[in-house]
Write a protein that binds this DNA or RNA. Structure first.
Lengths: 154, 154
DNA sequence: TCGATATAAGACTAAAAATATCTTATATAT
DNA sequence: ATATATAAGATATTTTTAGTCTTATATCGA
């Protein structure tokens, strides 16, 4: 497993929505600007979040995204796995059939343990907690327009 | 982070050497056959293991590889990181500068914790333990020649 | 009802990383 | 010397990631 850029972007997106609170409609454009994520890429990620039941997408003029649940109820694990699929640190963990004798394999057992530990840690964290504190790679919430100094960088 | 094939192969290689014990010379060809790793790829991996001080490489006729330390002293973490570099679950962990304010970032803190936990788990495991039990993806130790049914598969 | 605005969905492209393989060089035993 | 074994680096292939583009669809408001 590895946190891909898409996963990172997904976290930024949900974090931005969490700061606005459950149910608040926020346009893709605004989120993209604040979080420094390419708008079209964000669209793809949002679709995955929607399929996972984390956000709702509203089409049409004044459309956008909104959180379906309270930030407290949304874990880091849920968001990440909505984007990159279930975490598995190596092939053996996710697809035991890739290794014929994985149930008696000592190496496999270690990976299994580590994998379960990792998922537990990510599950302990919810977006209310994350939003409460200063957030990585996001411009401060209140000011919207004079946007991210990172965007536009080569 | 993700356990790449190269990392997996590195584990198999050290595991094979561990079963022979510290100091025993084993040819690359034999290891490659038993572990079902492409010989040339194994060569590359072995070089990384050698640079990390885990094995010694002997050139020339009857050359091969051998463990420099007791299997007890070799951790899963050491072998993996010799191959794929220091584990970091996302960019932010390994290169804090990739995110300007990572020290005050709540998301970053979670990743840091998970990363440290993962490394600890892998460090707890040594190759004496692993070799003692049945090993994944390796033909049983004593019989050498009639090799791995996996090899040759498309 | 029409046009402006917004996202949907999937095809397409580009870049990067992973996974080898090949070739030439070097070391060692006999 | 020769046969055998690995070293080291160049090259190639494949897969994954990241990002963009195009056409379609939905909604608001005049």
């Amino acid at each position: 497993m590895r946190l891909t850029r898409a996963g990172e972007y997904g976290i930024r997106c949900v974090l931005d929505l969490a700061r606005h609170g459950k149910g608040t409609l926020v346009s893709r454009k605004d989120i993209a600007e604040r979080t420094d994520v390419p708008p079209h890429f964000l669209a793809k990620i949002a679709q995955q979040l929607a399929r996972a039941g984390i956000i709702e997408i509203l089409q049409g003029a004044n459309g956008g995204y909104r959180l379906l649940a309270d930030p407290e109820a949304i874990t880091l694990l849920a968001v990440i796995e909505a984007i990159i699929g279930e975490i598995s640190l190596n092939d053996c963990v996710g697809r035991p059939e890739s290794c014929g004798i994985s149930d008696i394999c000592s190496v496999h057992r270690v990976w299994n343990k580590a994998n379960q530990q990792l998922r537990a840690t990510l599950q302990e964290t919810n977006f209310a907690t994350l939003a409460r504190e200063e957030a990585c790679c996001l411009t401060p919430f209140p000011q919207t327009a004079p946007h991210n100094p990172l965007s536009g960088k080569k």
